[in-house]
């Protein structure tokens, strides 16, 4: 009987219509900006503007290489990141340091950022916390030869983003 009345009076349909109408009148202020009109409004962490949402905490952007507190490179050239990388975009050539036979370093370190999927596995794999992820995401370049992230560029980014603060970024290994 109740089901019959419901069918006759279109109760469920009216409920649905009211729900959609509610969403129609929910203006942007109420539900927050769902759509961010990107080139005009953007999410940024390092350029804090009120009313703009920051990027989320665990955002995975451009990779960078970090330095120790004394200014030397952390990377020991173990190539674990290269082995772990699912898209095979990291190339590491390691070598021994000239004066200290037991210390190794990466003679050549390059991330082909066009192939990187920003999964963060390399950061997890790194035993010395040399790799870290920043929140940079606008990585377009005008020329092909400037897009590959060489060691110098990665270190440069790391100096800006992680000025010698030993903090784990992605975590999860512990």
């Amino acid at each position: 009987m109740i089901k019959f009345l419901k069918t006759i009076l279109f109760i469920d349909i009216i409920k649905g219509l009211l729900l959609t109408l509610k969403h129609f009148f929910m203006l942007r202020g109420v539900r927050g900006e769902t759509t961010i009109e990107y080139p005009y409004k953007r999410r940024f962490l390092f350029q804090k503007i009120p009313q703009q949402k920051p990027l989320p905490e665990g955002y995975r952007g451009l990779l960078c290489l970090r330095r120790k507190d004394d200014g030397s490179e952390r990377c020991v050239g173990c190539a674990l990141c290269e082995a772990y990388c699912p898209s095979k975009c990291i190339t590491v050539v390691s070598a021994e340091k000239e004066n200290e036979p037991l210390q190794r370093y990466a003679r050549f370190y390059q991330i082909d950022i066009t192939r990187c999927v920003f999964c963060g596995y390399c950061v997890d794999a790194c035993p010395v916390e040399a790799l870290a992820m920043t929140k940079r995401f606008e990585l377009s370049q005008y020329e092909k030869n400037t897009i590959a992230m060489t060691k110098e560029k990665l270190l440069e980014v790391g100096d800006i983003e992680y000025p010698c603060l030993p903090v784990r970024q992605t975590g999860g290994k512990e």
Partner: peptide, 10 residues
């Protein structure tokens, strides 16, 4: 536009 607003789009 109406469909967009109802579906929380623009």
């Amino acid at each position: 536009r109406v469909l967009g607003l109802i579906q929380d789009r623009l």
